[in-house]
Write a protein that binds this DNA or RNA. Sequence first.
DNA 1: AAGAATTGCTCAGCGCACTGAGCATTTCCT
DNA 2: AGGAAATGCTCAGTGCGCTGAGCAATTCTT
Lengths: 155, 155
Amino acid sequence: MAAVDLTTHPGHLARRLQQAHYLLWNTMVSEEITSPQFAVLNALVAEPGLDQRTVGERVGLDRSTIAEVISRLTRRELVDKVRDPQDGRRWLLRLTAEGLRTHKKLTVRTARMNQIFLGPLSADEQTVFFDLIQRVADAAEGLRNPQEPVAASRG
Amino acid sequence: MAAVDLTTHPGHLARRLQQAHYLLWNTMVSEEITSPQFAVLNALVAEPGLDQRTVGERVGLDRSTIAEVISRLTRRELVDKVRDPQDGRRWLLRLTAEGLRTHKKLTVRTARMNQIFLGPLSADEQTVFFDLIQRVADAAEGLRNPQEPVAASRG
DNA sequence: AAGAATTGCTCAGCGCACTGAGCATTTCCT
DNA sequence: AGGAAATGCTCAGTGCGCTGAGCAATTCTT
């Protein structure tokens, strides 16, 4: 008899929120391209020619996951991958024409979907919603990636 | 040049929030038992003898996922599974003694973790945080599971 | 009582997400 | 120049999460 109320557990809420989003995305945006895939396309629109690791950093995906996502995008010919001639370890990534078209199309649909998704909240509440989630996520990420001790400042 | 700002995309924020939580859980709560697994244990503490589908409903997992989670929990001997003698389609689920002990232990650690996780927010903000996320998630789930039309109330 | 529909569960297939191990290239240090 | 360290990526393994197809037991209908 020590069951806990999961509605006060942020992890549980985060999972439910993401699932709900996933379903809505599937019906309103695309059944082919997923939300993380869109995030990658978007990162490459902003900064063409990024390498794989950096793209992962921009969208918040680790080395293994970003590799898989990109392999799916290249298989669909939305992204091009070429070895960096300056540094043979890197793959440089770039959208194809088709990739750019896809990004454009999904941008519109995503905006529509977000409106529906956030519909239950007033404009003010939406702002708060973004702010709170971001602060929590940023702080937690900070716990894992402790800042470089900013060089040795004595002591 | 039509890149979008992902920090205003609830889906992206939800994913980051969940990842951040996942990492913290791993370091502060358990490397063996995951958050969804804990949710299942918790549901069975509250209502012993539930069937698989209903547990899934309680914690927000679909039929396939709940089957996998439960198979891991039974493999670890935290949960017992017996055929319902009244209805041969059902598996009835119940915690083992070990499962109960595990739930107890993790309840404590989870509470500690939640404090850290929500640390960046004031008490008031935490309340708002729960409220906003829950409203959005509930509404989105409602879109997918439209209420039974409450019988035919004329026209 | 027999057939149809429903229900609980399993299985295969896809995709996201992480870790640890390992490979190849580059860079850094002596 | 030559070895050590760092860096970008891949691979194998585990777990969550969804869909569609299918099986077996139950319930509903006639």
